[in-house]
Design a protein around this nucleic acid. Structure first.
Lengths: 345, 345
DNA sequence: TTGTAAGCGTTATCAA
DNA sequence: TTGATAACGCTTACAA
């Protein structure tokens, strides 16, 4: 195991000291052209890349920002990753990316790792964290952002969506459009699914209707949606509206409807949540609630870097409004009503 | 901006030296119980987590492995991420995860970042890298793995699939089953799509049939598949088989067929590639080629850590066999034939 | 334009 | 069981 090349080796090859080589990377203009060329040759020959660890260590900034998402396979988080990536790049920082699998313990371990790398800031999804996670982040005294869910106990920046109010309003609106047998299809893995379910159930009860929620422990995907829909159709009266926790479940439900030859949206409307791109691929295309994930992440990152620069960090809660992603899986009337309801939320 | 807490602060609170605190974390048994408790109290109170940067710097190992995937939204890479994650955890290393967006330049920058963090090993997807990337990785003299595509110029461990041979064989088999108007639907972003296309076209030509390939620059997703299928159906003769570069495109094509009321698999069979979970959600369920991504990644990681431990690293190429993911979008006869063809590849 | 010395926060090593 | 010292590889501050 030969020792890795360092500034010293390059310095020796170029016949200068390490300091000059350091300058070659940091402030090339302060190195004489002739010297510069000799150093460049040595760098070229060796493929040398200076270690950032020493400066991460000695400076107060490591130039690193951590982002922990629950899942990589869920399209919702792709937008967040992209926004964070771009923001980090724009600010000359690198993004340390991890996934928790919706497990607060895993998140705890990742946060510990990020702090051990001396990350300058941490971005989390959701508001469910272990006590230890919260304590560590607080005492680290670095900017923290929580995305998607809003919380009354923010660790710092809390930008998100009030999912409960959203589904309450949507359900009420659909009832107003004449739907009576609205069913909610969830998937337990994501804590946000419970908030949505609660909103739905409250609205149903307030209207004197009986809520009917189905969910599963399985990770949400098309198959889950299809299976839940098949189950709904096989037991009890056929619903006239299927409200889904997300687009995956909704698309699965839509596929099941097609194969059961249930006419959508006449007999039954199907509505998803998130507004992922594949909504348009369905036939009929899926009506969904477009959550402003990218905007949330962008705004949060901007504020995060501002706080990082200023050293300040007052807790801040901000709720975002959703819009309707139009399609063919609900009636025009419903879409019109939903659109209006969302814009006044 | 107050200075972050370090070993010294904890040491002071506990009335010991930094060294004792360091031992508390590294070899707790070598610290007297009473001392241990005082240190524990200080750690608890401050939420202190020791920095790993100094030891990353001074040891020859940083305890860090880099993984660069082209995309997070493509389900293919989820398996690879999971496998790498588990392998890293099992070996006490942490995974530094990045995505290139299928851009070799972005990959180059990420590799540079990984090397600047002194990653102990790097895992890449595919075999397309810039010259600079290759040179840097070579001179870094660390274990490198390339997954999915096999290459004749490996940087180290090259475990993957011969996509060209695979699609050549599949196409031949389908022709053997009586399909004559086989169409290939691709998506340009992934270089592997070209290999698959080449295999398909060679087989068609060898059989005296005219290849018909459609593709797009758009990032592959359901909508792309749907649009390509709609285009195919609107121009020229209706194909009797649609071979797709991946499952996303295939599912989109299937959805288009449903809406066009083309009977699958009687009139036309649809076949995907990768065998992602959502194949089962389609109706009929999608027939696909299951690529052993997880196995490839697991095997590669195991070898990677072996090489890391031993210090050796001979280049190694290994091709993996695919299996058929059965479903309803191809005839029984076709599935039987494909299954046999794959097992003899 | 280049060099020298000190220090970043941890751990290995040796000493007590 | 605990402590003192040096070292890791780089950058800042100062000197030449």
């Amino acid at each position: 195991m030969k020792k890795r090349i360092g500034l010293s080796e390059i310095a020796q090859m170029a016949g200068v000291t390490r300091m000059t080589v350091s300058r070659y990377f940091h402030t090339p203009k302060s190195v004489a052209p002739a010297t510069r060329e000799r150093i460049a040759a040595a760098v070229e020959k060796t493929g040398f890349i200076p270690s950032r660890l020493p400066s991460m260590m000695s400076k107060s900034r490591s130039g690193t920002v951590g982002l922990i998402v629950p899942s990589f396979s869920n399209g919702v988080f792709s937008d967040i990753i992209d926004a964070a990536d771009e923001a980090a790049r724009a600010h000359g920082a690198s993004l340390l990316l991890m996934h928790s699998g919706y497990d607060p313990q895993a998140e705890e371990a990742h946060v510990a790792a990020l702090l051990s790398y001396r990350a300058d800031a941490v971005i989390l999804c959701g508001a469910e964290h272990t006590e230890l996670t919260r304590r560590r982040l607080k005492s680290a005294a670095i900017p923290v952002a929580e995305l998607l869910s809003v919380t009354s106990m923010p660790l710092g920046i809390s930008y998100g969506i009030d999912y409960e109010a959203l589904f309450l309003r949507m359900t009420k609106t659909l009832i107003g459009c004449g739907r009576k047998r609205i069913v909610y299809l969830g998937a337990q893995l994501d804590p946000r699914t419970l908030l949505r379910q609660r909103g739905y159930e409250t609205a149903m009860k307030e209207a004197g209707l009986k809520p009917r929620s189905l969910d599963t422990r399985r990770r949400s995907n098309f198959t889950v949606g299809r299976d839940l829909m098949l189950e709904v159709a096989s037991k009890g009266p056929l619903p006239d509206c299927v409200l889904c926790t997300n687009d995956d479940v909704a698309l699965g439900a839509l596929i099941a409807c097609q194969s059961l030859e249930i006419s959508v949206p006449e007999t039954l409307s199907v509505i998803g949540c998130n507004g992922l791109n594949f909504c348009d691929a369905a036939m009929p295309s899926l009506v969904s609630i477009k959550t402003p994930r990218r905007e949330i992440a962008e705004a949060a990152c901007q504020r995060l870097f501002e706080n990082l620069a200023s050293g300040k960090s007052e807790p801040e809660i901000k709720k975002w409004r959703c819009t309707l992603r139009k399609g063919g899986s609900a009636t025009e009337k419903e879409q019109q009503a939903l659109s209006e309801a969302l814009s006044s939320l």
